[in-house]
């Protein structure tokens, strides 16, 4: 199957096991409310059982995007070719519209820290990551999209802002960007830059899709928890992004304290409405 044009994906949700039954029951209130689902790839890199069966049943009804957390594109350990082979195998079954992961590293010395760890924003890191993206894209036979992770520290040796780093990765490798609007907001607060500067620096054609999520504000810093609804500042930044990028596939990501699907559908409807409104008033671009 040829991957669908990304802009045609519309508005999606992260697929969570708690919601399998209601999705497969085909409840009338879901009709037309969810255009696609994003899966956490690692949850389905298994040999059998209920998760894979549920995924394939849902895939029969919805487009799916594969989103991973263990590519570790920035690690100085060798690429994990077993992992990539399993990812490619899952992609052959699922035929995802997009395969994405994060701009980060997840461990070295054979250890997986299971976290999205920050990279120094240097020419050395840029060359390293670009070379690995080339290898991954060649192996998978397709472009990947990389997400801006929320970060809590920066490095003394950083030489460019993150948006320039991403822009250059896109230019060198052709990889797409999964722009997490919440993560831009979180990192902007944590590192004292303007979130709109970040969004405005991202090339329009680079954005494969957008993540929206909630976070925990601790007063002096923000933690990207994905455990609550999207906040107003992030909605405003999303509207700004839509005015810049035009119609772009968008989804709500919730990883903890998962509410009933109907709650997420309402939040997704808010995204849909806000995007339509922003697109109807492009002149308001800041």
């Amino acid at each position: 199957m040829t991957p669908r044009a990304v802009s045609s994906l519309g508005f999606g949700l992260g697929l969570r096991p708690q919601h399998y039954p209601v999705i497969l029951d085909g409840a009338p209130e879901l009709a037309g409310a969810i255009d696609w689902f994003e899966i956490l790839s690692e949850n389905y890199l298994v040999d059998g059982g209920r998760p894979l069966a549920m995924l394939m049943a849902i895939r029969a009804r919805y487009p799916v995007v594969m989103h991973g957390v263990s590519l570790s594109i920035g690690s100085t350990d060798p690429l994990d070719m077993d992992y990539l082979a399993r990812l490619k195998g899952l992609a052959a079954r699922v035929e995802p519209a997009i395969i994405s992961d994060h701009l980060c590293w997840t461990g070295v010395a054979g250890i997986n820290m299971h976290d999205l760890l920050p990279l120094p924003l240097t020419e050395e890191a840029l060359a390293h990551v670009a070379a690995r993206i080339d290898r991954v894209q060649a192996f998978l036979g397709r472009e990947i999209a990389l997400e801006n992770a929320s970060t809590y520290v920066t490095f003394t040796q950083d030489s460019v802002p993150e948006w320039e780093f991403l822009r250059e990765l896109h230019r060198r490798t052709g990889c797409r960007l999964l722009l997490d609007i919440n993560n831009v907001h979180v990192s902007a607060f944590n590192h004292d830059f303007r979130a709109t500067d970040y969004v405005d620096a991202i090339p329009r054609e680079a954005v494969a899709y957008i993540h929206l999520a909630g976070h925990e504000h601790n007063g002096t810093y923000i933690i990207d928890t994905h455990d609550r609804p999207v906040v107003e500042d992030v909605w405003q930044l999303y509207a700004h992004a839509v005015r810049r990028f035009g119609p772009v596939a968008t989804m709500i990501e919730r990883d903890d304290r998962i509410p009933p699907l109907a709650d997420l559908v309402r939040e997704l409807a808010q995204a849909r409405s806000l995007a339509a409104s922003a697109l109807s008033r492009p002149a308001e671009v800041a």
Binding site: N43, G110, N112, H114
Partner: peptide, 9 residues
């Protein structure tokens, strides 16, 4: 025993 597998599972 730090994790050495791509999946936290």
């Amino acid at each position: 025993h730090p994790s050495q597998h791509p999946s936290i599972r």
